[in-house]
Amino acid sequence: MADIQKQFEKFHDNIRLANENRILKEKRDVLKNNLGDALKKNDDAPTVDKYLLQGSYAIHTGINPPNSDYDIDIGVVFDCTKEAFGALKLKNIVKEALDHSSRDPKLKNPCITIQYTKDGEDEYHVDMPVYVKRDDGKGYDLAWGKNSSSEDWLHSDPEGLVDEINGKYSDEDERAQFRRVVKYLKAWKGMKFTAFTIPSIGLTLSTWEMFAPDIDFYDNSKNDLAALKKTVARILSAFRWVAGVEGKSLYRLQICLPVSPRNDVFEKLTDQQMTELKDKMESLLDTLKYAENEERSEKACKELKKHLPDFPVPSTLETAKASVLSLNNTGSSS
């Protein structure tokens, strides 16, 4: 078996989004200040109770986006309950406060989105969900919708989700390996799915439920290849047959949010799209199995590179030990 943990670590360094990414933190702070100042000028606006760090930043599974359009999730919680405002009314108050010559906030069902561009290219975007408090103190009510027909309040618990995900692994090494495996699968999805998107939270929660760590009990050495392989195998075994269409079987994987509203995070994907996810994951698993068997590291890494973007491939020379200069006699065979 090829030992390619070093290559996995290098790959991880390439894809990971550094948590201390200062620029993104600055953008968040600027946005918070702007929003706070603008809301103060509006007498109708409720006061901000706090901001929530959510999304992959909060669970340390952020990766550099393939198209370099960074995604910042920042939730805003208002110090009121849903009785005080209509969901759409409140979202519009926030949208107007964010409106600015250089910004063009847009209403989406779960949030307000602001796309920032640089030299005509998308540079990053901010998704801002708007929450109000609940009398029972269990999470928040999320302002949902972008028009009067979709408008609603949805019970949501973003902090509970972060706590659930971050709290599952008490062992520091296992938690770090879990986060790496999530990042590998997100990088894989970025490379393999272009026609439609697999929600990142789906891969994150699938891994969270099915994660199989691989850390040596005695010397604590990590085997990310084995952890990824076992996790993918477990996820695949959780797919269920749902229908047969024109001789082709269709499958789904159902993974529910562990907190309210506890919906299936893959619910927006069609049966065909879920089956495509399964097919591509099976092909990934085949390659992971091959890489585990292959003795020659450079061959294993070359195959992995077909599934994991820019996976590092060692040179043939660095995979071998030095040898003596030979002496070769001539000889006859028959």
Binding site: E295, T316, T319, A320
Partner: peptide, 13 residues
């Protein structure tokens, strides 16, 4: 070929 690192596998290249 190579005497591979990390074991005694041999690769005829």
């Amino acid at each position: 070929g190579r005497h591979l690192k990390g074991g005694s596998h041999i690769a005829v290249d």
